[in-house]
Simulated assay, not measured.
Amino acid sequence: MTAADSEVRHILSLSGGKDSAALAIYLRDRVPDVEYIFHDTDKELPETMDYIARLQAILGKPIIRTTPDKPFEHWLKIYRGMLPSNHRRWCTKMMKLKPFEDYVGDGPVINYVGLRADENRLGYISTKPNIKAVYPFQDDGLVRADIIRILEDSGLGLPPYMDWGRSRSGCYFCFYQQKIEWVRLLETHPEYFKLAQEYEEKTVEFGEQFYWSQNETLRELSRPERVAEIKAHHEAVEAKRKARRRNLPLVQVLAGLEPEDAPHLRDGCLVCSI
Score class of each variant (00 low, 15 high):
124 Y>V: 11
179 K>E: 09
103 Y>K: 03
109 V>P: 00
123 G>V: 11
160 P>W: 10
148 I>P: 06
91 C>G: 08
87 H>K: 05
160 P>A: 05
119 E>G: 06
185 L>Q: 02
179 K>Y: 07
153 D>F: 08
184 R>V: 04
161 Y>W: 10
118 D>S: 02
164 W>C: 01
133 A>P: 06
173 F>H: 10
74 H>L: 12
180 I>F: 13
110 I>V: 01
76 L>N: 08
119 E>C: 01
136 P>A: 11
177 Q>W: 04
181 E>F: 00
108 P>C: 07
186 L>R: 05
112 Y>I: 03
185 L>C: 06
92 T>A: 07
73 E>L: 05
79 Y>K: 10
171 C>Q: 07
154 S>H: 15
183 V>N: 07
163 D>Q: 14
118 D>G: 01
154 S>Y: 14
160 P>H: 09
160 P>M: 06
137 F>M: 06
149 R>Q: 13
121 R>S: 00
186 L>W: 10
74 H>E: 03
142 L>N: 12
99 P>H: 01
82 M>W: 13
75 W>T: 00
177 Q>M: 06
146 D>Q: 15
130 N>S: 01
164 W>E: 06
170 G>K: 08
88 R>T: 13
186 L>S: 04
176 Y>W: 07
94 M>P: 07
95 M>A: 04
91 C>W: 04
110 I>E: 00
71 P>I: 13
104 V>F: 06
116 R>P: 00
144 R>V: 00
148 I>G: 11
104 V>W: 01
88 R>N: 14
142 L>F: 15
82 M>D: 12
117 A>P: 10
168 R>V: 01
167 S>K: 05
98 K>F: 03
162 M>Y: 13
82 M>C: 07
85 S>A: 11
101 E>H: 05
132 K>M: 04
149 R>S: 12
149 R>P: 05
95 M>L: 08
145 A>M: 05
144 R>Y: 09
118 D>I: 02
167 S>R: 11
101 E>C: 02
165 G>H: 10
116 R>L: 04
180 I>Y: 11
155 G>E: 09
152 E>I: 13
124 Y>F: 10
120 N>W: 03
117 A>C: 14
124 Y>W: 12
69 D>E: 11
124 Y>H: 13
151 L>G: 15
101 E>F: 08
98 K>M: 01
120 N>R: 06
69 D>N: 05
68 P>D: 08
80 R>W: 00
80 R>H: 03
116 R>D: 15
113 V>F: 10
72 F>P: 06
105 G>Y: 04
116 R>M: 07
79 Y>D: 09
152 E>K: 12
122 L>A: 11
76 L>S: 09
107 G>W: 02
119 E>S: 02
147 I>V: 03
183 V>C: 03
108 P>S: 03
120 N>S: 02
122 L>C: 12
122 L>V: 08
163 D>Y: 03
169 S>A: 07
86 N>E: 14
78 I>Q: 10
128 K>W: 03
146 D>T: 12
